[in-house]
């Protein structure tokens, strides 16, 4: 049965009432009305729903809302804004990366986490870190260019 859960999203406290099994993605999109994490597969296979949980990329389609606990949830809109862009956002804009952009959360959030751990990754390290994410529109080359640009910023 539905229960109440407290969530810390982008530094703000929220409460949602939901089935404990409901994935975090639906709490963010449907209950909190956020646009940025997207539904792509619901199977942890594509990354469209990626958020950071305490700084680590997590696929919110496959994290039950009851498992989030006190972890800090950061979404794409939480890493930066038009006024104060994160360097990865700025680099993706500079390279004009997305086509439809339905895949973007995975690439951006995983790149943010990569650059935290490894500020100057090689091409191969970038590919290794981003492997498994999907983009149907074929923007992969511009993604790699953007991550390299962000690393130089």
């Amino acid at each position: 049965m539905a229960k109440r859960f407290n969530l810390n999203v982008n530094g703000r406290a929220h409460a949602v009432t939901a089935d404990p099994e409901m994935p975090l993605l639906y709490a963010l999109r449907d209950d909190l009305g956020m646009h940025e994490p997207r539904f792509g597969c619901g199977l942890a296979q594509c990354g469209a729903c990626t958020v950071l949980l305490d700084g680590n990329p997590a696929r919110s389609c496959s994290v039950p809302v009851s498992a989030v606990g006190a972890a800090k949830v950061t979404t794409l809109a939480g890493i930066g804004s038009a006024q104060k862009p994160h360097k990865v956002q700025a680099a993706f804009i500079e390279e004009q990366v997305p086509q439809c952009g339905y895949c973007l959360n995975g690439w951006v959030m995983t790149s943010v986490a990569l650059l935290e751990k490894n500020p100057h990754p090689s091409d191969e390290q970038i590919r290794d870190a981003l492997t498994g994410l999907k983009c149907r529109c074929g923007t992969h080359l511009s993604i790699i260019r953007a991550v390299k640009r962000a690393a130089q910023a």
Partner: peptide, 21 residues
Amino acid sequence: TRRRDVAEKLYGTATVMADIK
């Protein structure tokens, strides 16, 4: 010339079909 839809997609402020309520 910059595309108009790119920046808002990066900031998570774009509204796409799946976001319509």
